[in-house]
Nucleic acid binder design. Structure first.
Lengths: 198, 198
DNA sequence: AATATGTTTGTGACCGCTCACTAACCAGCA
DNA sequence: TGCTGGTTAGTGAGCGGTCACAAACATATT
């Protein structure tokens, strides 16, 4: 069944993400991705010159998804704490929707084979931590968060919460609701970070 | 150069860990490991029946190292907080000494190919969190840590700190002292968890 | 409307290479 | 002499990628 190129490309990217989740990023061969969408392996190379280019397209697709999710979370209604919580919620939602994401960060493809891919993800994750630090700073300025902890350190601790929960979810049996459990622990940590009189 | 089997086995395991760090766990081929210690690829199969068995030996070696490091950290002199800090310090030291460890947790070998291997690591990490929770409980009972946070939740938050710093170290350029930066952030988090009047 | 021409998308066979693993032979030592 | 720790040589499977070719689509000319 012939399809226009743009559609095919999106289909391939989706198949790669799905396969990466189900069998692991490094098991995604061009053959597996192709047969997942019902074309031959050679057909993939009509749309992407190399496998690395295919992965790069996947990375950009994921990065875009994250960026727009953050944008939505940062609509300027509400306190810095609410925005912070929305950011974290968005992150968990994106991870739940793209479960291959944590694994991808540690894949051979990203860490060894494809330096450009690594750069794309690294930049994306840095953006997230900066957004967190920004909101934390605003929270401290508003007297909502204790200011005896550096905003950058607090941001690191919060990203650690996200990573920790996500890792437990991915490496375990995924037997809990990622977003709920994540937000629960975020609330605990946020309580620890809250200003005394709150 | 002929060597007794036990020595060779240890040598192979060490070579695999070293290679896993330098080129990534999934790039460790039998050929690469063999030539790293100056024997032919086929010689490996004199000592391990399959590659999976080799990885299992590596996992057990690492697990033993972790277990004894925790044991040393838990010598019963000092407060629960000191023991807690020693546990964390030991963990960072082990990771720094075996930098392949975080990557290993996400390798194809562990997550896809080798279910037994996954079990070994999973059990080991659970042990660590239980040790943390135990010390935290003791700290709460002694009035050193606030008890409005469940000990299990606090343990999760602390393991998240470890994972978060380790991930930043591994995925980044390893351009900071893992143990120092890790303990610094542990102290921050521990301060947040400390009882009010402390 | 029918046809001619060029482009896009997909196929199937195949290539070179790497991998884990095996088989057969070999040297030193108890 | 027989066991132990090695070698050399080879196997089959799977990988990313290429190639000649075919079918589907688009467009312009008659």
């Amino acid at each position: 069944m012939r399809k226009p190129a743009e559609l095919r490309k999106a289909e391939i990217v989706a198949a790669v993400l799905d396969l990466a989740d189900r069998i692991g990023p490094d098991r995604v061969t061009t053959g597996a991705a192709a047969s997942a969408i019902g074309v031959t392996q050679a057909a993939l190379f009509r749309h992407f010159p190399t496998k690395a280019a295919l992965w790069q397209a996947v990375a950009e697709h994921v990065a875009e998804g994250l960026a727009t999710a953050w944008d939505d979370a940062l609509r300027p209604d509400g306190s810095p704490l609410a925005r912070l919580r929305a950011l974290i919620a968005a992150q968990f939602a994106q991870i739940a929707a793209t479960p291959a994401l944590p694994m991808l960060l540690f894949s051979r493809e990203l860490n060894v084979t494809n330096a450009e891919l690594r750069g794309t993800f690294h930049r994306t994750l840095m953006s997230f931590r900066n957004l967190l630090a920004q909101e934390i700073g605003a929270g401290q300025a508003a007297g909502l968060l204790r200011d005896d902890v550096a905003a950058d350190d607090a941001a690191v601790l919060l990203t650690a919460v996200v990573q920790g929960v996500a890792i437990r979810w991915v490496l375990g049996a995924r037997d809990f609701a990622l977003r709920d459990e994540g937000l629960r622990l975020f609330d605990v940590q946020c309580g620890l970070l809250a200003a005394e009189g709150e």
